[in-house]
Amino acid sequence: MAEPRATAPDWRLVVAGLGAVFLLAAPPFLSAYWVGLLTQVVILGILAMSLDLLIGYTGLPSLGHAGFFGVAAYGVGILSTTYQAGVVASIAGGFIAGTGLAALLGLIVSHVRDVYFLMITMALGMVLWGLSFRWIPVTGGDNGIAGIPRLETLIGLPATGPIPFYYLALVVFAACIVLMMVLVKSPFGLTLQGIREHEPRMRSLGFNTWLHGYLSYVCAGAFASVAGIMWAYYNGFVSPTYLDLTASSELFLMVTLGGPATLVGPVIGAGAIVILKNVMSAYTARWLLILGIVYIVTILWAPQGLWNLGRHRRS
């Protein structure tokens, strides 16, 4: 019989466990404001994880990822206000818009890698932003679309308000994190990591790496769309700032800060940025500077992101 090993549990397990308990149990004891911030964390957490599929797992650095998030949000906004569509149609419409767009743009971007991928996704992201800003009859331009009804009411929850919405978002978040965790452990998920690690080798083994890269782009777009739908309902409005370059780069920061290829890391990155932004800005208008400092410190102290702290450094 093997001797029981006396190793302490990985700190990550402890943190993740405490985090899960907190997310599940804390909101009833928090003020509505903090519940709102936590809601943002879980929604943006989904978004950050979806980008992690691209950056961390497939090795495709996208700087236009907020585009799908935004387009799905616009889908919900436009359908539920202009067309007075029902909740199912609005959600389905938002999801199809975001995912369909990823399927379309994926055809273009999956042919390039590395810095070219970065640049082309950035350019497409800016085109989408321009469209949201300029296609006024549909998007309301700079003013955006307001008046999206409350999701809790639409789906017939007995109660409305920050806490019911939060738990709704948490359920969606839980479903997404479980799905993505299975995804990255699946044969397909492993092929994505193979592409990140050595794409030519993948090809000579018999993988059509273009197809896998494309599918990962579509998957990431689909999860980003889920986040976009929740975001539209959370804020009750959509505006071009959802999909501008700032949004995409902040998202990029969440992933790199939290630790790419970990899924949990980007959620922590999202949490850190949301909390930092809102708590710090109460004290100083220079919160961006502080975020910059935090980022630099992280780069120096945990170059692979917070969640990879103490793991072997990637070459």
Binding site: A32, W34, D142, N143, G144, N235
Partner: peptide, 27 residues
């Protein structure tokens, strides 16, 4: 919007003032 929520729900302000951009105003 997040700041408005903070002001209303956490600070429990009685009245609000401000905003510069129309997009923020609509939101």
């Amino acid at each position: 919007l997040t700041k408005a929520r903070k002001l209303v729900e956490r600070d429990e302000v009685h009245v609000m003032a401000g905003a510069l951009l129309s997009s923020t105003g609509y939101a």
